[in-house]
Nucleic acid binder design. Structure first.
Length: 423
DNA sequence: TCTCCGATTAGAC
DNA sequence: CTAACGGTCTAATCGGAGA
């Protein structure tokens, strides 16, 4: 097809968390293995061997016990410090291939290769360099739009013959049609479980069906998002690359508890740690929040237990990023929400109505306090140097019952000297 | 009836 | 022995309250 087409690559690491673990444990290269979510709850990354054995993405780990014992599947707790560090290395390498890149997630990056002289050679070289320098396998999908690049990446991953690189722009219209007729619509970026069902009700089952569906009807039934997706599948870019990473509009810190929480003191302890984390993220992007929400959750999977999932928001008179101020509100709200007699499984703090710290809402009644700004800076600096949680606001982290289970964590090979053999 | 805005939903990973 | 099921974020859309 036309060489005027945009050549947008999506580079995606294969089985990212598992692959990161294997870099430092080459002996596990053929072991069926998975990485678990927080609390060792669900499977969030699977080796090819684990996939082949039928372990599902997002499956609760306890459901896999039989299979795991039968086949000796290894499960590791997630080690985010390690994955973040490996991710940075990959992104840095990819950044050398184009000035136009968007780090889309921890293991994915869009790279605009339009106009590259040796496109094919470059794509393979990119892949080989990442592998050589980090030990991580990646696949490269290329298309004229982000949605097509994602789809191309799926093809590259699925078909070994592609050798890890697939360019949709190399296909004729007829070849593309035949390919799209064979890919389920659920593989399309933005089409999840619910939409797959609703699309099926309209006779749309394959990528080709969606690509060629009647646009006005699609728009009327499914809204703008689906129309954009269709346009993107047709090669019309509707979703632009985002250069700088925008400030977050909302910051959440929530966690499921290792043990159910049944006392207000323990809940407040957990919430104060969540608040400190959330506030630190806020300060890291030089923002302040004017809206604080607290929520509690009982265990929704326990049909036998009474359910209570309250949440409450408070608007602040003055936006702040001060952990102590925020924590006073969180603490207060927690007291209002709390009811004895329930077994709480999860809680969280949400900061929103976020603005840059420069913009200060004037308040006649309560003059702005600046004394604590220095204190917060000191806390952030110390925590950064000595590890998060080394310094915390007075009430947080004294109880341990609520803390999450992580019984299978690997060492932080790249970021932490502790546990690294000295010889 | 319209508009605004908080709550809910759906999706990604 | 039983029970065990993640965390953060965005954008669109829904729907109730008040104008």
């Amino acid at each position: 097809m036309a060489n005027s087409e945009r050549q947008l690559a999506l580079v995606d690491c294969n089985n990212f968390y598992v692959s990161c673990e294997r870099v430092f444990r080459p002996d596990l290269a053929r072991t069926p293995m998975v990485v678990l979510s927080n609390n060792d709850g669900c499977v969030v990354s699977r080796s090819n061997e684990a996939k082949a054995l039928g372990i599902g993405m997002g499956q609760p780990w306890f459901e896999c016990q039989d299979l795991a014992h039968q086949h000796g599947i290894l499960a590791l707790s997630s080690n985010y410090a390690l994955y973040a560090d490996m991710s940075n290395r990959v992104m840095q390498i990819l950044g050398t291939y184009s000035p136009e890149v968007e780090v889309y997630s921890i293991d994915e990056c869009f790279v605009d290769l339009t106009g590259q002289a040796q496109l094919k050679a470059t794509s393979y070289a990119m892949r080989e360099r990442v592998f050589k320098w980090t030990g991580l396998p990646v696949c490269v999908g290329i298309g004229a739009t982000k949605t097509l690049a994602k789809l191309a990446n799926h093809v590259a991953k699925k078909h070994p013959r592609s050798q890890g690189v697939f360019n949709l722009n190399d296909l004729t219209a007829a070849q593309q049609q035949r390919l799209f007729e064979r890919i389920e619509v659920s593989e399309v970026w933005g089409v999840g479980r619910k939409l797959t069902q609703r699309l099926a009700a309209h006779g749309i089952h394959t990528v080709y069906d969606l690509q060629t569906a009647h646009t006005a009807t699609l728009r009327a039934e499914f809204g703008v998002v689906m129309e954009r997706t269709q346009r993107e599948l047709q090669g019309v870019a509707c979703i632009e690359l985002q250069d700088a990473h925008a400030d977050k509009q909302q910051i959440i810190c929530s966690r499921s508890f290792g043990q159910p929480v049944v006392s207000l003191a323990v809940l407040k302890d957990a919430l104060s740690v969540f608040t400190a984390n959330a506030a630190q993220k806020l300060r890291a992007q030089n923002s302040q929040a004017a809206w604080v929400q607290v929520f509690l959750r009982t265990n929704r999977f326990r049909r036998d237990q009474a359910q209570y999932n309250p949440s409450m928001s408070v608007p602040l008179v003055q936006a702040t990023n001060d952990s102590l101020v925020l924590n006073r509100w969180v603490d207060h709200v927690a007291g209002l929400l709390w009811k004895d007699g329930y077994s709480y499984k999860k809680a969280g703090v949400v900061l929103s109505d976020i603005s840059p710290t420069r913009v200060q809402q004037m308040d006649w009644l309560e003059p702005q306090k600046t004394a604590d700004v220095q204190l917060m800076k000191t806390i952030d600096t110390l925590n950064q140097r000595f590890g998060r949680g080394c310094l915390k606001i007075s009430t947080g982290g004294l109880h341990t019952q609520w803390q999450m289970k992580q019984e299978r964590k690997s060492q932080s090979y790249t970021t932490d000297w502790h546990g690294v053999p000295c010889v």
